[in-house]
Design a protein around this nucleic acid. Structure first.
Lengths: 141, 141
DNA sequence: CTTAATGCAAAGGCTTTGCAGAGAC
DNA sequence: GTCTCTGCAAAGCCTTTGCATTAAG
């Protein structure tokens, strides 16, 4: 899967991006965003917590959770649900789907450009489309 | 969505079905299965617990969880992940996908017969297909 | 100063586990 | 009697919340 940016975003670019989403770019938020956008990947909250702590200054777990929640709410990132154990946070903002390796617990992107989902019945009355997620579950053979 | 059987299964039919999956049909297991198959629906563990307690003899929460886990393992039912808060247990055993009303937290089946997912890239090396889940997320308008 | 953000620890919700007692054969 | 299942309560895990402290303007 190609990265969704290249080269890596600078701190200033990150800050701008946060501002564009109406998010005040504090040190912690910028560091979390940097981690999320550094490489195309799917992180659990725990992984973000560890990775930020390693690469940058320490950020508390509460702030990690609150910030991830804020980013999701502002649609900077999205959540992926494939497992009851934990939520994945996905920083690929382009339309895409996922392979999920059920044994390794790994998510991989599938570009939405190549995928067609057809034949979905009319939406129930009073609703509108919020998104279509395709999860291709894999097992090792 | 049409029910996946009709009329309702008798206790004996349920027991047979459990045996076919290699599950010893105890009272609790049969009652839980009856609840799950009574109508086409998606239950949280909590809902199964309450519904069984109301309709049948009481079953402990531990047994509900253990039994649901057993049923999933034996592929009598499947889990659906759409929300971090809880797992849905789905007793529709035919291939199908889901609408998910994000505001009401309601799942509705989409028959797989009508849906085509095309253009999925080749599976990663060493893996085989375990299933394709399509979740059509809806919001109220 | 005043408002917003952070961090710690405690609380919460869902789920699993340990283990003693009940049931099946 | 032996093996399995059940149920309670305790523990576990991920996540959220309350609240005092710190940072920002």
């Amino acid at each position: 899967m190609e990265p969704n940016y290249d080269p890596p975003l600078t701190e200033d670019e990150i800050a701008q991006r946060l501002r564009r989403c109406g998010i005040n770019p504090t040190r912690q938020r910028v560091e979390i965003a940097q981690t999320l956008f550094r490489r195309q990947a799917h992180y659990s909250a725990e992984e973000v917590f560890e990775e930020v702590g390693r690469a940058q200054g320490k950020v508390s777990k509460a702030t990690v959770y609150n910030t991830l929640g804020l980013f999701v709410e502002r649609q900077l990132i999205r959540q992926v649900f494939v497992d009851s154990a934990k939520v994945f946070y996905d920083s690929n903002t382009r339309p895409h789907h996922h392979f999920y390796d059920t044994e390794r617990g790994e998510l991989t992107d599938i570009d939405a450009g190549s995928v067609v989902v057809d034949g979905v019945p009319p939406l129930p009355a009073g609703t509108e489309l919020a998104g279509v997620d395709v999860i291709v579950r894999l097992r090792r053979r």
